[in-house]
């Protein structure tokens, strides 16, 4: 269980990126965070990843407060961020140096097969397309079997077709070990197709407007009536998020499915 209690982040220049964020994410849950730019959604992820420290509140995994990067928490960024001097196999095995060589190579081979790039182990990152590189980045984060995987707009730099393909890949990979997924995205459809719950955030300071439970069976059709209805609801929340925050509470937490 990943839990955040009244988490706030104020930067040295006085900008309040996050204030009073309280959230619990159950093991194996897929949580999506949506919101306009500057609403603090990426900051939230970086705090959980331990890349930045919170200025207020508490972040804990299974009751243990987090201080810095945690071995059970992995992160995938918007860009693949593969290390250009390592081959694809070297990149995937980056977090596996504690294993013996045969064990590491077996894990890498399995991961390569799982992301559909079985023969790519010896290639350099520069030889990959954007979608392939992001799949390798996913494998690198998942091969260490984290309990929580954070994804910071992982597919936003890809074109629509490859994005849908990778969303499917993500669900398949998730179903292997069922880690908790926290997915930051500005793509509402992506959030609704993938997530169990969608957190809507608003800026100045970054905080949670609403948490919607998406009680639809998977796989979800992108054009289903339920999904489109939910999409309108989220869009409405985002539109109203700007001028007056209080209004948002008027919306029901659960959709009439």
């Amino acid at each position: 269980m990943l839990s955040l209690r009244h988490v706030g982040k104020t930067y040295p220049n006085g900008a309040e990126a996050l204030a009073g964020v309280t959230l619990e994410v159950a093991p194996g849950e897929i949580l999506a965070i949506v919101g306009g730019s500057g609403c603090g959604k990426s900051t939230l992820l970086r705090l959980v990843a331990g890349l930045e420290g919170a200025s207020a509140g508490r972040i804990a995994l299974d009751g243990v407060p987090l201080a810095g990067p945690h071995p059970a928490i992995g992160i995938v960024f918007q860009e693949p961020r593969l290390l250009p001097w390592l081959t694809v196999a070297g990149n995937i095995g980056f977090g596996l140096t504690h294993l013996s060589r045969p064990a590491r190579e077996a894990r890498i081979a399995a991961a390569l097969a799982r992301i559909g790039l079985p023969d790519y182990g010896g290639r350099w990152p520069r030889e990959l397309s954007g979608g392939q590189a992001q799949r390798v980045a996913l494998a690198r984060a998942l091969v260490v079997e984290p309990r929580v995987l954070l994804l910071d707009e992982p597919f936003s730099a890809l074109d629509a077709f490859i994005r849908e393909d990778l969303q499917g890949h993500l669900l398949a990979l998730w179903s292997d070990t069922r880690p908790t997924l926290v997915l930051v995205t500005h793509d509402i459809e992506e959030a609704l197709v993938l997530a169990d719950r969608v957190v809507v955030m608003q800026p100045k300071p970054g905080r949670i407007t609403q948490v919607l439970t998406i009680d639809l069976p998977r796989p979800r059709a992108r054009t289903g009536a339920d999904l489109l209805h939910l999409k309108q609801q989220v869009l409405g929340l985002l539109r109203h998020a700007r001028p007056a925050a209080a209004k948002a509470n008027a919306y029901a937490a659960s959709p009439a499915a």
């Binding site: 945690h70 961020r81 290390l83």
Partner: peptide, 9 residues
């Protein structure tokens, strides 16, 4: 890229 290293502790 440094952050990748940090995220792997």
């Amino acid at each position: 890229i440094v952050e990748v290293g940090r995220s792997f502790r």
